[in-house]
Amino acid sequence: MKKVILGVLVLGSLAYGAQYTKADRIKDMRTMAAAMNTIESGFFYNNYETVAAGVTTLSETIENVKPPIEEETEKNPMARYMNGKIKMTNKIVKKINQKSLTILQRFKSGDSAQAVQAYTKILGQCMKCHREIRRW
């Protein structure tokens, strides 16, 4: 019986420790900002490898970003529907990943103007999240 209780406590503490915290979000936001700067530097220096490195970092980091824990644990289905943060976050992640691939494809083919346009659309998605979810 003691082993069962101990096992439940260990599993509970592991599950609790795996939550996406505010500190994790800040770290991910800083990583994404650095990735966007890397992409921009690649544009300025016309360097595909730099752009690809930034896109890779951005795509990997954006997958970590999750809705706020209070939205995920909301019990009232109407409140979850009205807030829509989970659905909105998932859409933003999907659009950023699509535009990231567009940047790589367009820049590699020599169409830097379209690559920069896709970069601008990613910035728009970032600002949409900051306005709607973070209330900037």
Rank of each mutant, 00 (worst) to 15 (best):
M1R: 11
I5T: 15
I5W: 11
V8T: 13
V8K: 09
V10S: 08
V10R: 13
L11H: 06
L11A: 13
Y20C: 05
T21C: 04
T21Y: 06
K22Y: 13
K22F: 13
K22E: 14
D24F: 12
R25Y: 05
K27Q: 11
D28S: 13
D28Q: 02
M29V: 14
T31P: 06
T31I: 08
T31H: 06
M32R: 01
A34V: 04
A34Q: 05
M36H: 15
M36K: 15
N37R: 15
N37T: 15
N37A: 13
T38N: 03
T38G: 15
I39H: 01
E40H: 12
G42T: 11
G42Y: 00
F43W: 07
F44T: 14
F44D: 09
N47C: 05
N47E: 09
E49I: 08
V51E: 00
A52N: 15
T56F: 05
T57V: 10
T57P: 01
L58I: 01
E60G: 08
T61L: 12
T61C: 06
I62K: 00
N64C: 05
N64I: 08
K66W: 04
E72K: 04
E72S: 02
K75D: 08
N76C: 09
N76A: 12
N76V: 02
P77W: 07
R80S: 06
Y81W: 15
N83V: 07
G84D: 09
G84K: 14
M88P: 02
T89R: 07
N90A: 05
K95H: 07
I96R: 00
N97E: 09
Q98V: 01
L101W: 00
T102G: 02
F107Y: 07
F107C: 00
G110R: 13
S112F: 10
Q114H: 09
Q114A: 09
Q114L: 08
Q114Y: 02
A115D: 10
A115H: 00
Q117Y: 04
Q117E: 06
K121L: 06
L123D: 04
Q125T: 03
M127N: 11
C129V: 15
C129H: 13
E132V: 03
R135L: 10
